[in-house]
Design a protein around this nucleic acid. Structure first.
Length: 275
DNA sequence: AAAGAAGCCAACCGCCCTTAT
DNA sequence: AATAAGGGCGGTTGGCTTCTT
């Protein structure tokens, strides 16, 4: 009944990853691609939970990740997206090529939050702190005249006016009506029922040039490594990363990444995991 | 130079939805 | 249909680094 357990908790290592562990994980994924994470620790010779391997890969080892602080443009985009999506970091990260949800979440909590508060803006509601209670009908973005929210202003009519970011039921005042609207949280798990989410996640959102999400020439399809992607594509992307960060030479040869690929041996019974 | 405070971020935790059996 | 694991996600934590006194 059901599936086999992800990993036996006994003997599973926790805490920071060592260079050796990273090497093993990279080595394994380079050879076999991203397959069933449950099988990865065993096959790669790691005493880690599959979940831990997945996180390590997606948040740190992935070759297409950008490094360093978010640029001003990226930060601006995060703020704009957060105003619409709330704390749905994975959705926000999907719009920022090379950035992870964890990275964006951390950046938000450590930098952006404080910045917005300093500017007198509630980082949760994106409304001016001093106006939230006293004058809820006033357009918060016009009131502040903040460049940060120019994009939001332009689209207030385009998207549902009940756009809020609170995780609880929220009270929204529309611009043309004093009617108080009790709306369900935007963070409804079923995005198909959410017209705002549908719009944001639709192609038309990206095609709407006035959002100015990315400069011309950027390609969203470049982001991420789908499981179905030809492994050779991202394998090539890995070249610089592997050489710079791990001092790994002769990328592309049979003998890559320090230890020989022959070190990764798939038991017959386990080969089915990675098809 | 040392100690404590604050900042930062990688990694873990736990929940929820999906999917395999 | 029921059950249980897989996978994804957001929230939180803990330890390392940097700053301040």
């Amino acid at each position: 009944m059901g599936r086999q357990p992800c990993c036996d908790k006994l003997g599973v290592k926790k805490g920071p990853w060592t260079a050796e562990e990273d090497k093993k994980l990279i080595n394994f994924i380079l050879v076999h691609g991203q397959c069933c994470w449950r099988a990865v620790p065993k096959l790669a010779g790691l005493r880690r939970c599959g979940k831990s391997c997945r996180l390590r890969w997606t948040n740190y080892l992935r070759p297409d990740l950008k490094r360093g602080l978010l640029s001003e443009d990226e930060e601006q985009l995060v703020i704009d997206l957060h105003a619409r999506l709330g704390n749905r970091w994975s959705k926000i990260a999907a719009r920022l090529p090379g950035r992870t949800d964890n990275e964006i979440k951390n950046h938000w909590n450590t930098h952006v939050k404080k910045k917005l508060i300093k500017m007198g803006i509630d980082p949760v509601t994106h409304k001016p702190l001093h106006q939230q209670v006293s004058n809820p009908r006033e357009n918060p973005f016009e009131a502040n005249n903040l460049p940060s929210f120019s994009i939001i202003n332009n689209h207030q009519e385009t998207i549902a006016e009940s756009c809020t970011t609170s995780s609880t039921t929220t009270t929204t005042y529309t611009e043309n009506s004093s009617t108080k609207v009790e709306s369900q949280p935007l963070l409804d798990s079923n995005k198909d029922d959410d017209p705002l989410m549908s719009y944001i996640l639709s192609g038309s959102f990206l095609e709407d040039s006035s959002w100015n999400l990315l400069s011309s020439g950027d390609n969203y399809s470049d982001f991420g490594v789908s499981s179905s992607e030809d492994s050779s594509t991202w394998l090539l992307n890995y070249k610089d990363f592997a050489e710079k960060d791990f001092g790994l030479a002769r990328f592309g040869d049979t003998d890559i990444i320090g230890t020989s690929l022959n070190d990764v041996v798939l038991p017959d019974g386990d080969k089915d995991y990675c098809t």
